[in-house]
Nucleic acid binder design. Structure first.
Lengths: 223, 223
DNA sequence: CGTCTTCTTGAGCCACTTCAAGGTAAGTGG
DNA sequence: CCACTTACCTTGAAGTGGCTCAAGAAGACG
């Protein structure tokens, strides 16, 4: 957990991030150390004080909640360039875990808050990041009323959109992660992927690499 | 749609609103007219420019989306004291409709934005309102992975918490509204309510008034 | 009182879950 | 390099919770 020169990662593929807020994370006085987290390790737990705001430098993070009866819901996935851990009050409503080995930038929440008080533009950036998170949450809710095929299609398109362009989508997360994000079982996720492959809509290169052979079919399912 | 003296309504029952942001809506230079909307009339449509921010003075509002195949999702309900219509970019992602006859306060979005630039405290209030909306959206997603009983129980508890205290919860919205909010059909909502009445957990006083006879049972379902 | 809307109830069906078994890939020690 | 282990993924068969279709009951309103 040693401090080190901050090298800003490539911005998210879809360019959703705000320049000034990114700048906040790059500004020398505010940047914290870039910390490695091992696959499946907890970054913070539900109910813990939210003392930091986080940015993914490399890897992938999931935010989730374990329900009393053993079910789990994954609220979202975060990839290189994404910010997570922003909370209204000082307590994390979700826990965060590394999906794969990660490098995470940590910035003191108090610094973010005071900077946004001083600098209206930074404040606006903070607000924009929150609004973006709101839209993601609303789209997630919208996803959860759809059929299994539609959920998987939407998920694949979202990934393809957010991850760096490449011939195949690199999943990183397990079937269980996908299932808990989509509100399905792993069996249904697996069956749906097989089914989409059967119609030549996608092609599975091993379990964790997927080529979108016919995105327009996925778009139709998504709409 | 004539301008009239602004009389601030009683604050939301749960006191979630921010004093300074409320103040924004009460400040003379920012307050717009209080406008009546008839039951089921559209306040704004999906995709329309977001020129205003809204506050419910009296009545109830739903924000919703109509999917291409005729399904509808309701994103949320807003009651006296609640703010809605806040958007990141200048376009409404959801449409808003009056559930019953309403009085709605409209404030120019540009005024809100410029005020939050000038005054850090107002800016913080704007952010807090957005964070609250984010939490609501996340809880909504959490709701949608549960069983019908759990969804209905959570919904009833949320209503009881947000609406002014009274012996019975006054529903205002139709079974179809509830169904579209919970991701169920009207039949399932109706059956679930009947079933909860059968176990003496609730009591139906007509279709739109419900007494929570045993909230602890609902709490158990909610957890 | 009749009409229209909304809500409830019933019966059958289907998409997804559950339970169970087998396959695949990556790592580990001999 | 290969046997063994372990974690993960796929596939099958049966079960079920909520949906669909259909009819009737209860209110709301002129």
């Amino acid at each position: 957990m040693s401090a080190q020169p901050i090298t800003l990662p490539r911005p998210a593929a879809n360019g959703r991030s705000c320049a000034k807020f990114d700048c906040l994370f790059g500004a020398p006085e505010l940047s914290g150390p870039s910390v490695p987290f091992e696959r499946n390790s907890e970054i913070y737990g539900e109910g813990e004080p939210a003392d930091y705001v986080y940015k993914v430098i490399r890897g992938a993070v999931r935010t989730c909640k374990n329900l009393s009866d053993g079910r789990r819901q994954i609220n979202g996935f975060y990839f290189a360039g994404d910010i997570f851990g922003l909370e209204g009050d000082g307590e994390h409503a979700w826990s965060a875990e590394a999906v794969v080995n990660c490098k995470i930038l940590m910035v003191k929440r108090s610094l973010v808050m005071s900077a946004s008080q001083r600098d209206a533009e930074v404040g606006h950036g903070l607000w924009a990041a929150t609004v973006q998170e709101l839209q993601r949450a609303q789209n997630h809710a919208l996803l959860l009323i759809k059929s299994a095929q539609e959920r998987v299609a939407t998920f694949l398109l979202e990934l393809a959109h957010r991850l760096p362009c490449s011939s195949a989508v690199d999943l990183m997360m397990s079937r269980q992660d996908i299932a808990d994000y989509l509100g399905l079982t792993i069996e249904t996720v697996s069956r749906t992927l097989t089914q989409l492959q059967g119609t030549s809509t996608i092609e599975l290169l091993g379990a964790r690499r997927i080529v979108l052979r016919n995105p327009s079919v996925l778009d139709t399912l998504n709409s």
